[in-house]
Amino acid sequence: MDPILKIENLTISFGGIRALNKVSFEVEKGAIYSIIGPNGAGKTTIFNCISGIYQPSSGKIFLKGEDITYLRPDQVAKKGIARTFQNIELFSHMSTMDNLMLGRHIHMKTGIWRGATFIYKGSKAAREEIEHRGKVEEVIDFLELQAARNQFVVNLPYGTRKLVELGRALALDPEVILLDEPSAGMNMEEKGDLMFSIQDIRDDLGITVLLVEHDMNLIMDVSDRILALNFGEKIAEGLPEEIQKHPEVLKAYLGEEEKVA
């Protein structure tokens, strides 16, 4: 089977610093694929290249065989790739509901005229709103965000905001989802729930998951395959058991071994 996502020799520099150097990997459809590495290894940079926020200096990114390397972020989203951010990027003065509704943006059509002039429940714009609110409600149920539904996200606790961001990405109905340190700042219980959610995202929703995480227990439990990076170089790739024992990985994490254990 062809991989859903294929990264070829991805290279990017910032002012002389190679943040990524010829990184290649393939992600199978329906996999939970994790990227690990110490801070500054280039994990977020890979996500930024895939989602079109950064333009790599060389290398290619293919989604289902289609070259998406130089697409804009909004075009990448339309191709079916959604993401979350390491430092939450929510629309803080919108409610949870509206944040998730923005996730439906690409699936909706209402433009300026119809949006400003609809007058009753049967109008096209109103019908579309109602339909997509139904979809969003499913995501709210899936992540158990009912209590946060009508709250402004600025007023929500950190862990809940992380979930709202995940929900917004899910509302986009993506084929591939990129999660950048989703468990950061969560307590043990929240992390446990998150782990089940990530598995459900793959099992129930059929979405391919790319995961950047620091919590090694979570990584080892959920990942099908793992890519290990250090200083922008791929140092290892394989099954969780292989990565756990890999000498290069252990070396990169020297002083952090207790995490790998």
Partner: peptide, 22 residues
Amino acid sequence: TRVGRAFIAIRDSDIAAEAMGV
């Protein structure tokens, strides 16, 4: 509705708005 939400989204986080397809 949709257009207004896109406007507010751009105000609150243009990077996230763009990554969500705006």
